[in-house]
Design a protein around this nucleic acid. Structure first.
Lengths: 255, 255
DNA sequence: AGCCGCTTGTGAACGCACGCACAAAGTTGC
DNA sequence: GCAACTTTGTGCGTGCGTTCACAAGCGGCT
């Protein structure tokens, strides 16, 4: 906000990180990916307009988002792709690798373990856990599945900072407690339960069933208001752009 | 938008559905699940306070959410579990099954196809598609994988209303176009791209890499502001409740 | 060097959503 | 039947997030 003008010192992105809205952080990640693609295509600079269109946001919003991390644009020109990429990376803390532990190697967990989108983006899956004796011991993508009871030891050994929970609902809370005890700071929860964690631990929830149910609602609404003008409140997340309707996702959830 | 008041024509949940905030819709799905569990446990009624605590929201917010779908509570008592469950189900359009088509049976897609959370909640996966000749023809959970080129025909035959895209990024847009042509009304997109769709089609995006990057940001912030007072803006989605810190998920995305 | 056009960065207004707090309404006990 | 208690439903204030619109700044052209 009222950040005093300053050249970046050295190490961490400390001062700059003050007070970035959560919604902005999420979008920064999207910009980052697009910047990576642009860099591959050999682009030197992008204007806010171009980057905004490519990522599906309003250009003013994009500029405001970027303003939270500093003034790295050149007026009359745009943003230097490589430089901006680097700045966002630094802000999001992606300049160092974050080891991820995944608990629950069932259906979804197995897929997540093999998902290349993680390791390729600075989140190597460093540990896998399950309780099923048939699963403990097998290898997935070169990583052996350990028993849940070893979470504290293994996580400590491998410097895990982020946990992902892909267990059935009933097991999630106890697994979560284990992860917290192991010093994990952030948890991505795929289980359909509300996790109780100490204040300093961040939980983020992805609920696939909820996503579908929200879509089902829209189908129903459409059917109901078929020939009528009954319309749901547009809400912040919707919008029409270039004749293109893109309701953004929001895995959303309570609280 | 400015929909004139109107009595519901036939059976559908038309007038109740007028103008429910998107955020509320997502939470209704969460309430619904908890109500299901409560019903299994034999509960007859719940108070807003109980249901709110169980789902991790503020009780006032919960009551306001429920007020959007009507007044089904009993003052001094609470809500009748079965009745409320039914009302929410109706509002979300879950009283009829929605056939889902899944395109992309790779890592993630395969898991989604086998995910019991869908079929069990009124979203039977009715069709699977891929372009890989090695995958076309195989069976997953009793469903044969068809070629992407047959999307229009198969979707029409099986009455698919919702599409899920779990392909690599580059393939997503063309697959999306196919689904739209097949009459799919809503799309859940797991591919890391912004889809362009006609206005009447709803897109919801789930981006796992973004989720992790948001978490990484929180780890970095924590490390940076270790002994300082550097704090991120709490944002609407965070909160402390009973000494429990639960930042909600938000698969979020642009727009 | 000076002007022109383009793009950034941001002040200000708007709108949604959240949460408080209370009135309305129903229930239980006497 | 009345009083006290419980719980819903909601009007209102507040804060965050989005959007508009414009001044400030930079590069290129003459």
């Amino acid at each position: 906000m009222t950040s005093p003008p300053q050249a970046d010192p050295s190490g961490s992105a400390a001062k700059l990180v003050r007070s970035i809205p959560e919604a902005t952080v999420a979008r920064l990640a999207v910009y980052l990916r697009m910047l990576g693609e642009l860099a591959e295509q050999g682009a030197e600079t992008v204007s806010s307009e171009e980057l905004a269109t490519a990522t599906g946001v309003n250009s003013a919003k994009l500029r405001k988002d970027l303003s939270y991390i500093g003034s790295y644009g050149i007026r009359g020109v745009g943003y230097e792709v490589a430089s901006l990429h680097h700045q966002i990376e630094r802000t999001l803390g992606l300049d160092r690798q974050q080891a991820v532990a995944l608990v629950g190697v069932g259906n979804l967990g197995h897929a997540l373990a093999g998902y290349s989108g993680f390791g390729g983006r600075g989140f190597p899956v460093a540990a896998l856990f399950d309780v099923d004796p048939d699963l403990v011991g097998i290898h997935i993508n070169g990583i052996v599945v350990e028993h849940v009871r070893d979470i504290p030891r293994v996580c400590a050994e491998r410097g895990v900072t982020i946990g992902m929970i892909a267990t059935p609902g009933p097991a999630a809370q106890s697994v979560c407690d284990q992860l917290v005890r192991a010093g994990v700071q952030c948890i991505l929860n795929f289980a359909p339960v509300v996790l109780q964690v100490p204040e300093q631990v961040e939980v983020r929830k992805v609920d696939l069933a909820v996503e579908l149910q929200v879509l089902a609602f829209h189908v129903a609404r459409r059917r109901a208001g078929d020939a009528s003008d009954t319309v749901v409140a547009p809400s912040v997340a919707n919008g029409v752009r270039d004749g293109v309707h893109v309701t953004n996702g929001s895995a959303v959830l309570p609280r």
